[in-house]
Design a protein around this nucleic acid. Structure first.
Lengths: 191, 191
DNA sequence: CGGTCTCTTGACGGAGTTCAAAGCTAGTGG
DNA sequence: CCACTAGCTTTGAACTCCGTCAAGAGACCG
């Protein structure tokens, strides 16, 4: 039984200890080494992942061959390609460990069984997606509102933990610009 | 009882006619005139809206005083500022009718009562947010992948209905560039 | 130590913005 | 039903942010 996950569930719904034990059975613990992939573009995403330890990222490769990191996920975050997961079509994304990580994997079949057998989990995931949707809305807003330089400073202030744990070129890839330009911004902010 | 909404709910969950009648009682029909606001920046968003007829948009005003349209919603779409709605803090967004519209308004209190009294609606909204989150993920992906010009052509092909119903400057505002540049792109594609 | 990743620097070019002004369209009131 | 006006769209010139390319300097790992 994973403490990280049960704590997280309990933040959103009231579930007894017995039921929490039951719920845990649906998940499988997976250890991922740095740079190893949990999902590869072209495959269908058959799992959704809860990060209990470490740091993952989601990215795709553009026509020009550039990696674009659309998302980071650290402890207590969920990460998956939702569209591929729910619609069973092949994914354009990779999900990869930035650091060695431990995740709890929930397969599509178990996801559906879990929701069916434990109605409290409908509420839990409703809350999770509600939050995730809200966060995505803000992400989208920032894209309109900020210049690339402002995006960096905003990110730096709101997520200092990532600057410690993630190499610069991945930060650049996440913010949607080149490592060269990130380097230039950093130089400017020093002086 | 609103047919539009009941049909939509039935697409996601199996609910009997009697319960559908009950569910409908939680909603209030609101008619909005073109350019009228359902939400104004600074206010807390106390409702979520289901569009049964017409077309709405969500936008915010940047520091420089420019309107940025982050979302359109037409028939059968939900629209709200989720973060303001769930966390009860003031919103930075406006929600405005692009055309005369009819919406079903669900207040925060009724939303919670509805979820509590009709567990099927937990599932319904879980599905709605799952889809909305998936769509937002794709929106974010496009921002990395496409140039502004490509964004326009992609939008034009996938949402031709909007080009009919929405003035150009709002399309530009949605795609995140200036009306002048949109005009230039259109000229290029004609020749 | 040696080699491969990562970060920095600088020159140049191009996509997209800003500003200003003119043409067009559609709604409104008389 | 027409005329007027405010708002929408187009054009063009100057400018800027940021990407591309190329090359060098560190840093980390075997």
């Amino acid at each position: 039984m994973n403490e990280q996950l049960t704590k997280h569930i309990s933040k959103f719904v009231a579930v007894g200890d017995d039921e929490l034990v039951e719920i845990n059975r649906f998940f499988k613990v997976v250890n991922v080494k740095k740079k190893a992939n949990l999902l590869v573009a072209g495959d269908t995403c058959n799992q959704t992942f809860f990060v209990s330890k470490g740091l993952l990222r989601k990215f795709f490769i553009s026509d020009k061959g550039v990696e674009n990191t659309t998302e980071f996920a650290l402890e207590n975050w969920w990460i998956t390609d939702v569209l591929s997961f729910t619609n069973r079509h092949s994914s354009e994304f990779y999900i990869q460990a930035v650091e060695n990580a431990e995740v709890l994997s929930l397969s599509r079949e178990n996801y559906q069984r879990l929701l069916h057998q434990h109605p409290a989990m409908e509420k839990y995931f409703r809350c999770i997606f509600e939050k995730a949707y809200g966060a995505a809305q803000m992400r989208i807003k920032y894209q309109y509102d900020f210049s690339r330089e402002e995006l960096y400073h905003h990110f730096r202030l709101r997520h200092p933990e990532f600057l410690q744990r993630v190499p610069q070129y991945l930060i650049a890839s996440y913010l949607g610009f080149t490592p060269e330009y990130l380097s230039e911004i950093r130089r400017k902010s020093l002086s």
